[in-house]
Nucleic acid binder design. Structure first.
Lengths: 348, 348
DNA sequence: CTGAAAGCGCTAACAT
DNA sequence: ATGTTAGCGCTTTCAG
């Protein structure tokens, strides 16, 4: 059978307490004794049973991670950061994916809590009104949100300033001379960050005197780009620039535009959001609002570990976003295919 | 504090055994009693402590997963499949990434085994001569390899037929009329699958009378595309077609070619390997040998669970690969920039 | 410096 | 149909 601390003790001719002390390097052990124990451990290929230890110490050194999906590189990168930081800190991670289905959030968290994770890193659909988070708060369970927006409840979260970031995209378009600027957003109501990006985008356009920009919501999961989207680009007053609420969506939209015979960026400029690495590799390269996903994952772990050791100093940690320039976004083109409305707008 | 089975028992006025029976729905319980217990559970918000259960039952219902990195979508997709299948089967997964550093494989596996995972899903550098796997075999620990090649030791693995798949790529190039065909491969010695792809590629070319194709090895992690690579494409007899051992590499190479002023596929045709989804989204779309990563993850879980229940019927499961056509691979072009050698080869 | 023993939360005989 | 109890592997007083 698999060796236990008892078998090691017997082999080394000591008590289990001594073996435990050697394993955990605590207390005074005569060097020769320690050596004998280590030898027994090596010979038996003994691996301390964390289950037994956890039961005794009430510490698991594990954290639970819940994200929408690993299939989106944004989250995969964040988890890579989480994994790395956790490993460094001697923690183990348990992962669950919700597939953007908020109904499964309860079950996922339940599983992880049953496994007695010491804390949670969560990306939920919406942080503000969330029964699950209410319950975690009520039970005093430590968690850190990732990508979610700071909310009035003061829930701790690691994110970028999605409002400011979206403003940046809008402002870039305006600086490029665009006036007919639209937005395409995925998981519209289902994501607080998408909502924040949307509002930042609208606000920035408003500041520039552009109101009621066309905003199209698409089903992000099965990215069948809707008829509405085709209409958007086929209209005579079609936008010359479009902000997409995430990179995967942006890349899909670029494909659609190609299908419609539109040139990017000549006919339509595109800026995405996320900064996934493949964006740099496509041609033209994707202009995007980059968020430091991996670092966000690392920060989430640090933040969580801080909270686990009682330090709840800061609620939200806002990491810097950055406009990553790319070939998909450029000045409004004189050769743009749809010109009629430009005259009107140029007077502004 | 956090409720225990004892606190539930007290509240419901029953013994802990009864509570346990209710939780696990086993044995005969009077409905009214069960109801009282369930009420107590709900009121206390009791979650059974898996740690305690595991210690008693010696079952954790968890599996350990070790992959090179989550930053590569191939592995992220596989893990998504693993997670999904595991969840369905009532299992939890613990993830570690090695970052392609085989030295960390031991530590990762050690951690997971200390956590008493019931089995492992591993992608290792090399399955044939592997001390870690030898040790797992010796200890009778169940594992399933993922992406690794079947080896003489009969280690169970989920993979595609990398040799045949690479042949397919080579044959496609040949069918397109290419004769000067090269290969660019990452983690050359460090990956049995890369080696298999390489040998399949060479074999297929050999069958077509093409020998000693140029093969360039690049450091996959920091994808600084080497000088050697530049030389490859600058040579007068530069290949008109290049097979890349994975998609990430292929996309990077396409970028390099653009930098060198070469057109894809006109000057150089490219076929990648993996079938990551972004390949379909870039322009031109990436021709690639697609492997069903998500399904492979699912299959790995099924295979592992089979083994855990004593069924070791099959060693290797070969899933079907598929040539995914794409814009990056096409017929050898009459306008190709480097023509001198074509005459010689066309005589074959 | 080391050992004996209690007990973490749970399940599974064994009783009744 | 339900209760009693032993014990999973480990850590940690408490003794010595």
């Amino acid at each position: 059978m698999v060796p236990t601390i008892k078998s090691v003790a017997k082999r080394a001719g000591v008590s289990t307490a001594t073996v435990s002390r050697v394993i955990n390097e605590q207390g005074y052990i005569r060097p020769t004794t320690a050596e004998r124990v280590r030898k027994a451990i090596a010979e038996l290929n003994f691996r301390p049973n964390i289950i037994g230890r956890s039961l005794k110490t009430a510490r698991t050194r594990s954290i639970g991670v819940m994200i929408p999906t690993l299939a989106n590189p944004v989250f995969a990168d964040a988890v890579a950061g989480i994994q790395d930081a956790a490993k460094t800190a001697g923690y183990t991670i348990i992962i669950t994916a919700t597939d953007y289905c908020s109904d499964s959030e309860f079950a996922s968290v339940h599983t992880m809590l049953s496994n007695r994770v010491e804390g949670l890193i969560l990306t939920v659909a919406e942080a503000e009104n969330n029964r699950l988070l209410d319950q975690l708060d009520a039970e005093g369970i430590r968690y850190v949100l990732l990508y979610n927006q700071p909310c009035s409840r003061g829930r701790s979260t690691i994110t970028v300033d999605n409002v400011a970031a979206a403003r940046l995209a809008a402002e870039q378009f305006i600086a490029f001379g665009h006036r007919r600027i639209g937005m395409i957003t995925g998981d519209p109501t289902a994501s607080d960050r998408a909502a924040a990006r949307r509002s930042g985008f609208i606000a920035a356009l408003g500041d520039a005197g552009i109101h009621d920009p066309p905003i199209v919501e698409v089903d992000f999961m099965n990215m069948a780009l809707s008829a509405e989207l085709r209409n958007l680009f086929s209209a005579p007053l079609a936008p010359t620039a479009v902000f997409c609420s995430n990179d995967a969506l942006a890349i899909a939209v670029i494909g659609l535009l190609r299908g419609l015979g539109k040139k990017v960026p000549n006919d339509v400029s595109i800026i995405g959001f996320d900064g996934i690495s493949v964006g740099e590799l496509i041609e033209p390269s994707l202009a995007t609002i980059e968020q430091p996903s991996r670092e966000m994952g690392v920060a989430a772990v640090q933040h969580l570990l801080d909270r686990l050791s009682g330090d709840a100093s800061q609620q939200a940690k806002i990491l810097p976003h950055r406009l990553r320039p790319g070939g998909t976004a450029g000045p409004v083109s004189p050769t743009a295919t749809s010109t009629p409305a430009r005259i009107r707008h140029q007077t502004v």
